[in-house]
């Protein structure tokens, strides 16, 4: 099957998936108790009716659903209920670069640190270096970022006064959130790399490479790594989507104006339009990245065919 046909088929599959997600989200959020215009301080009935009319919430749910779908196709989710001066699209496109930057740095760091650690651990299997690396990886996976973040802030910002404790201003403000976010990924990628490499290093073609007299470093870097890293590649797709769509915990601890905070708060606030916009955006992003990863797979592993 040609690459183009493959992409076309996958895109055609994405559309009904998105529709299912949109429908489920729409009815779930509308079924949640309360609504967007509810406050502890009573809202006068007239004002509430007016707001409901303005946003079309007085219409039957099915009609609201139809209108939502028709607009969603045009990527128009309307204004946020919570922040009426802003369109959902604007909010997403303002917050996305921030989350993507934070996630991008964290993922880059995770790959740059995690892969070498994993390779070393695999090559020196059962050595002290292996145990040390895997011990660290275990710790990295186990320490949640809501513990790691405050500990880093405590040490580096509030005791040593080296880095700002929060806010997204200037390059130095990136360091702590990126470190906090990447640790778990570094650890996981190191473990995946080690596992992949161990399997590959036992294979016949590696023995062949060694037999024809290639140096060990060439064998590892050129022959083994290419296949050994495959588990990492398949992990990076969803991981990238997740990490770039924002981490609610890290964004809260460091007060980063990213997407993660919006998504959670929008659900609490019953900000229907913002929730729907974010969910659909996230779903598309995730499926898009998975498609890219599948394509990358065929380039790395000649045994994999497009199906």
């Amino acid at each position: 099957m040609s690459l183009l046909a493959f992409i076309a088929r996958r895109v055609l599959l994405i559309i009904p998936t998105l529709w299912v997600i949109a429908t489920l989200t729409f009815f779930l959020i509308h079924a949640a108790p309360g609504g967007p215009f509810q406050a502890e301080r009573d809202i006068p009935a007239a004002a509430k009716e007016q707001l409901m009319r303005q946003y079309g919430l007085d219409q039957p749910l099915v009609r609201q659903y139809g209108r939502f779908l028709a607009n969603a196709v045009r990527l128009d989710f309307g204004p946020s209920y919570k922040y009426p001066s802003r369109q959902v699209r604007e909010i997403i496109f303002e917050a996305l670069p921030v989350s993507a930057e934070l996630g991008g740095w964290a993922l880059l760091l995770a790959v740059l640190v995690g892969v070498p650690i994993g390779v070393i651990a695999a090559v020196k299997q059962n050595s002290r270096a292996d145990y040390a690396a895997m011990g660290l990886a275990l710790a990295g996976v186990s320490v949640p970022n809501f513990v790691l973040g405050p500990v880093l802030v405590l040490g580096l910002s509030l005791t040593l006064y080296l880095l700002p404790p929060a806010l997204w201003q200037g390059p130095e403000s990136r360091i702590l959130p990126v470190l906090t976010l990447s640790t778990a990924y570094i650890a996981y990628i190191a473990r995946l790399t080690r596992g992949g490499m161990l399997e590959v290093l036992r294979q016949d073609y590696i023995r062949t490479a060694r037999a024809k007299g290639l140096g060990e470093s060439v064998v590892v870097a050129k022959h083994a790594l290419r296949l050994g890293i495959l588990p990492v590649v398949s992990y990076i797709g969803p991981a990238a989507a997740r990490i770039m769509m924002g981490s609610i915990v890290v964004e809260s601890i460091f007060s980063v104006p990213g997407l993660g905070r919006y998504l959670v708060n929008a659900a609490f606030n019953r900000d229907y339009t913002l929730v729907l916009g974010e969910v659909l955006f996230y779903a598309s992003f995730l499926m898009g990245l998975n498609l890219v990863i599948d394509i990358a797979y065929t380039r790395l592993d000649p045994r994999v065919e497009l199906a």
Binding site: K82, P144, F146, I248, S252, N265, F268
Partner: peptide
């Protein structure tokens, strides 16, 4: 409003 609360955090 934007009260995110992480129960364990």
């Amino acid at each position: 409003r934007n009260g995110f609360r992480h129960p364990r955090l």
